[in-house]
């Protein structure tokens, strides 16, 4: 395995994010947003050929559709996946989405609806969209492009769109669907909610990042995973695939300043 000599932080995050789907078997991989979508394609091509993908419109594909792909270069359709079927798929649980919430809290609850008072929001965002149904139906991973206390908030998110591990919002004695959180990829580290009682923890730190730096930029307490390690850097082969999946380098615009994957170590 040859590791790339230079790579961007976005590429490091894509490589780390792809691993979210590695052990999923035959489920639909939905990476929503530039980096998650490239990551889902990378997962399909390098880690798990059984994954189902869509073309982002209405069809299932066996080969990931590159970002900005010209109509004549698009892969053939393996099946039909209009929105109605997306709901059928997600309600069946055979889906693993990776999304980009604006706020995440220690209960793994996520917000994309609005900031401030719901009745008269300071900032109206997307609304809850599919988060409530996704969160109780299938596994969800998250990828965020900033790691600070505005993203990883103290207390709870302003609007709980994704159900999490929070007793407050569940009726006592009622059966709860299993909340399945995959990976949380940030510009500093990879996290999950696999600690005791679903406590959030850091699985790996990106090159040059310290646990203390992550903790200082997170609004809630974090645990160190028992085998806390450095995030694996992309291999040369992975970078080739990433470039095929994103030939126009849209990933360069995903993070402010498009920093190097080794920036923290260099600094």
């Amino acid at each position: 395995m040859i590791h790339a000599e230079t790579f961007t932080l976005a590429e490091l995050m894509i490589t780390a994010a792809a691993r979210a789907w590695a052990e999923d078997g035959e489920v639909m991989a939905n990476g929503i947003g530039t980096l998650p979508r490239i990551a889902a394609g990378l997962a399909k091509l390098r880690l798990n050929d059984r994954l189902l993908l869509t073309d982002g419109e209405a069809f299932a594909v066996e080969e990931p559709v590159p970002l900005g792909c010209a109509p004549e270069d698009r892969p053939g359709h393996a099946g039909w996946f209009p929105y109605g079927r997306i709901f059928e798929s997600l309600w069946s649980g055979r889906r693993h989405a990776m999304v980009t919430p604006v706020q995440i809290d220690r209960f793994a609850q996520a917000n994309i609806s609005c900031l401030g008072d719901f009745r008269k929001p300071k900032v109206q965002m997307l609304g809850v969209r599919g988060f409530p149904g996704n969160s109780i139906s299938h596994r969800n991973s998250m990828l965020v492009t900033s790691h600070d206390r505005r993203t990883f908030v103290p207390g709870e998110v302003d609007v709980v769109c994704s159900a999490g591990f929070n007793d407050r919002l569940w009726p006592e004695g009622a059966r709860r669907p299993e909340i399945r959180i995959g990976l949380v990829i940030t510009p500093l580290c990879v996290m999950d909610f696999g600690g005791p009682d679903h406590a959030p923890r850091v699985l790996s730190l990106h090159p040059g990042v310290s646990f203390e730096e992550v903790a200082a930029n997170t609004g809630f307490e974090l645990l160190r995973a028992p085998d806390l390690h450095e995030t694996a850097i992309p291999t040369a082969e992975e970078l080739v695939v990433i470039r095929q999946l994103d030939p126009h380098d849209q990933r360069a615009g995903a993070l402010k300043g498009n920093p190097s994957g080794l920036r923290a170590r260099a600094a």
Partner: peptide, 12 residues
């Protein structure tokens, strides 16, 4: 449906 359980969709 189970959708909405555990979220602020019920609160708001």
């Amino acid at each position: 449906t189970r959708i909405g359980m555990g979220t602020d969709v019920l609160t708001h």
